[in-house]
Write a protein that binds this DNA or RNA. Structure first.
Lengths: 115, 115
DNA sequence: TCCATAATCAACTAGAAAGTTAATTAACTA
DNA sequence: TAGTTAATTAACTTTCTAGTTGATTATGGA
């Protein structure tokens, strides 16, 4: 299993239960039981999912009496989008340049056709 | 293993070798051997990574004689960033509102202090 | 103190992921 | 046709993941 930050972040996002938990947390803090409520699976399974999210830095947990409220942390989300966008943009630029080349060639050809 | 599109995309991105392959492809098409060259692992392993990327729709492959050039496909990258940004923005907005509330309360308190 | 609640830890299982080597397919080349 | 190159498929191993149940820890309340 890769252990670099980006891999850990993407791996954490690669599960619908964990993404649903993050979506819920975008609305505000919640306890483990609250987060577990919508799902069929056991509380222990949710606890494990939270551990994965915490390890990825996507959530943080405090302590209030016997509750451990979770909150969303956006920093790894920034890093993840930054990575994706970098290569999306590079690919886009390259395609734009290709497109321009094709246009140039096509225009030249059309010019010759008309003369 | 979850099989929904987003999970498949994020899982594909959760590996440094695969991300390096995508980074290379942002520069333009490449064959399997070209993509494999920078890595220590076997060609077969790279072939498997490419299969994962293809299944996620992150690359497409054509055929030219005995070569199968790979190209980057950006559509799943868009979907992935869209998901992330949605919840990042929701969380950001919520924090902004919280911040305003705190400011209001602090200003009221300060007002009273000075009267 | 005793009990209930919130959550985690421990041990286990089934299935998936990532790598290996060996064999196979497909296309070009002499 | 025989040989070479590009790439995939097959079989196998090791390690990790995601879930289970049962036991344990930590806190608060009667």
């Amino acid at each position: 299993m890769p252990t670099d930050d980006l891999s850990v972040t993407f791996a954490a996002l690669a599960d619908p239960t964990r993404r649903a938990i993050l979506a819920r947390l975008a609305d505000g803090e919640a306890t483990v039981n609250e987060l577990a409520a919508p799902f069929e699976m056991s509380l222990q399974a949710i606890s494990k999912h939270l551990k994965v999210l915490e390890r990825a830095g996507l959530i943080s947990r405090s302590r209030e009496a016997q509750w451990r409220p979770c909150r969303l942390e956006t920093e790894p989300l920034e890093t993840a989008t930054a990575w994706i966008e970098q290569y999306r943009d590079l690919a886009r630029d390259r395609l734009d340049r290709l497109d321009q080349e094709i246009r140039k060639i096509t225009q030249k050809k059309e010019g010759h056709d008309h003369e």
